[in-house]
Design a protein around this nucleic acid. Structure first.
Lengths: 260, 260
DNA sequence: GCGAAGCGTATCATATAATAATACTTGATA
DNA sequence: TATCAAGTATTATTATATGATACGCTTCGC
């Protein structure tokens, strides 16, 4: 087994993690062989690793179907994550206020390499399930939050992101043309916020304001998703944006003490 | 190293997991030796394991302090968890409606052995941070949600839970007397809901209704936390309880198709 | 009701891959 | 500048994980 690196890389551990990552929105419970297929490991290895994960409480095993599923321990990890993320603690009360004020879904997104990840979500209206789940990771270029963040980068970094970061079609109208995205991000540079439509789901409009770090560069954004059926961009700018902006600003400057 | 079991138990993987679990609310970032102390492993082992976790993206490493922290991957695991939990998908839209109606914090709690774990939280008022974080695991006996769930058990199971499940003092007024808890649970048996005060934090009142499975036994509860400064038990029963009950019922019967 | 296929489980000889001791490097403290 | 604590690198040793093989149980299709 010619895994990565040597000596201070524990292959068995890495393989176990592969098993955990085999689960996603379309693979919610997996049998032994399914796990083997998805992880690329052989049956014996999966047998041992999955068994270990089960004993350690990281995987639940249905006694009748013998299928494995994520356990509550996965949520406990999220719990630990939240305490370690300075920004969330800072932001949460302000996000609650904002969501109460505007009565629409409010999200906190953080940059995660070339993606954004929703770290906190406060749904106010019924929405599709995926819009309520934390931990969703989406290409930064395709989201209002990502564009808002990128808009705070230096021109070079901005261009690099626009040119090289990944894109993926989610709806028929997801923008895959980088020139169009550049235009959108340039607007965000001018206006201090980003707006996008129909990117993740049709008839959805997203607005986002960057949370700017001490170095002037954003690492996160406050974002709001609304339905195009009840909102226009103009109304969003008039009614939502000011408060969204205030919230993002309120989170931004005070964070300089914490970020390291 | 005489770890548990044999042959189909991969010790290295288990040790790696110990490292992940070393992080919690009061240990948000850990150095190599701190990690060694908390996990009970020796420095060399931690070095290798932590390095592996870092390479695999499960731990962030501060380039200057060299400390490790939970990475965004921990949230991605939570994301996968949510898709695998049938109940959450079922419940979320109804919980959103409920929280909008009553304007107070609404939680979904699941039974996790002798604890409950908050699976979904919809904060409506500013609260302390811990009340907004998913994945919090609390002794079932000390929470309204846990008591509501236990109240649906058979008399024997109920008694066993009351007598043997763990308790831990969180506030000066956390009930540690099992007889008092028995009374509270018996009330819940009669009334179909549980109410508790001052258990996790002072001046907080929790109300919960069980989500009853096809076998008549609850495995989860809808819970609502309010401040004792603005609410009395009477007003809670009059204004919150009916809707809470409806929500729990709405989630309960339809779930029989899914639960396995 | 039989045979085959698919999957989960158990066993075991082998050498790979993890171990833990040791030594080196860095940087903070006094 | 000396000391200490913490992170990093190296190495010989063997324990530990490996994966091939075989067994048993269901679930099909015939």
């Amino acid at each position: 087994m010619e895994k990565k690196q040597n000596t201070l890389y524990v292959g068995s551990l890495a393989k176990g993690l592969r098993l955990l990552r085999a689960f996603d929105e379309s693979h919610t419970e997996l049998s032994l062989v399914a796990l083997a297929e998805r992880s690329g490991l052989d049956k014996s290895a999966v047998q041992r690793l999955a068994n270990t994960l089960h004993i350690e409480g990281m995987l639940d095993k249905d006694p009748v179907t013998r299928r494995f599923r994520p356990s509550h321990a996965w949520l406990e990890l999220a719990y630990a994550y939240y305490w370690s993320d300075q920004l969330v603690g800072q932001a949460i009360p302000k996000l609650i206020d904002l969501s109460q004020e505007i009565g629409e879904t409010v999200n906190l997104a953080e940059l995660s390499r070339d993606h954004i990840i929703y770290v906190s979500r406060l749904p106010c209206q019924r929405t599709y399930f995926a819009a309520t789940v934390i931990g969703r990771r989406l290409p930064a270029l395709s989201t209002s939050a990502g564009r808002a963040i990128i808009s705070t980068f230096s021109p070079e970094d901005r261009e690099e992101a626009i040119e090289t970061w990944p894109l993926k079609p989610f709806t028929a109208r997801t923008t895959l043309d980088r020139a169009t995205i550049r235009t959108s991000i340039n607007e965000a540079v001018q206006q201090g916020h980003a707006i996008s439509s129909d990117q993740m789901i049709l008839s959805e409009i997203g607005v986002a304001c960057p949370i700017i770090g001490p170095d002037g560069r954003a690492f996160a954004a406050v974002q709001c998703s609304v339905s195009a059926h009840t909102w226009t961009r103009e109304r969003i700018r008039a009614e939502i944006l000011p408060r969204l902006q205030d919230t993002a600003n309120a989170i931004s400057p005070s964070s300089q003490v914490h970020r390291r």
